[in-house]
Every structure is written in C-alpha cells, then in structure tokens.
C-alpha cells in the first residue's frame, strides 16, 4: 500500500512539472493586450476544482463531507459561469469592428 501511494505521488509530480513547463511556454505566448482575459479564463478553469466538490457531494445521505461538497459546487459554479462569461465579454470587445464610412485610407 505504501509503495503504491508513493508511486501515485511520483506520477502526480511528473504530471505537475510537465504541466508547469507547458504553462510557462503557453502563457508567454499570450499577447499582452489579452492579459486581462487571461486572468478571466485562468480563473474559470481553476474552478475545475468542482470535480473534487462533486465527488464529495456525490454519495446519498447527509453527512458533513457532503455539505462541504455542495458548498464547494456552488462556489466553483459561480466562478465557472462568471469567469467564462466575463472572459467572453472581454474578448468580444476585441472583435474586429466593421469599419463604417470613415476608413478611406
């Protein structure tokens, strides 16, 4: 059991460092003009923690753990919907505007 859990930890650690490196390169390629939407979208995706909250809220019955899980689901949902929508609002402002009459040169 002990050997197994340390193996799981090392796999997690491998995934962690590789993800950090991917994050590093991907984020540096983000154009500075979009740094605010970047914060919005990272905010939304970090709420993937809802996965843990759903697992806690999953079982039938009403124990402490389940209540914490439900609260977690509510909080994370606020963030998921709020984060993606506010990012969407920001990004739609960066749409190319159809030029009106004045673009003569």
């Amino acid at each position: 059991m002990e050997a197994h859990s340390s193996e799981v930890f090392v796999i997690g650690l491998t995934v962690f460092f590789l993800a950090c490196i991917i994050g590093y390169y991907v984020v540096w390629s983000v154009t500075p003009a979009l740094h605010s939407p970047l914060m919005g979208v990272t905010n939304a995706i970090s709420s993937v923690i809802i996965v843990g909250a759903i697992l806690a809220a999953g079982p039938l019955g009403h124990d402490t753990s389940k209540i914490f899980g439900i609260i977690g689901v509510v909080l994370a949902s606020v963030n998921i919907f709020g984060g993606f929508i506010v990012t969407y609002r920001m990004l739609s402002m960066f749409k190319k505007k159809p030029k009106k009459e004045q673009k003569d040169k």
Binding site: I22, G23, I45
Partner: peptide
C-alpha cells in the same frame, strides 16, 4: 495540470 497552468500563468 489545470492548477499548474493557472499557477504558472
């Protein structure tokens, strides 16, 4: 993975 992406960002 997601945590690391957000953390790095």
């Amino acid at each position: 993975i997601t945590g690391a992406l957000v953390g790095a960002s």
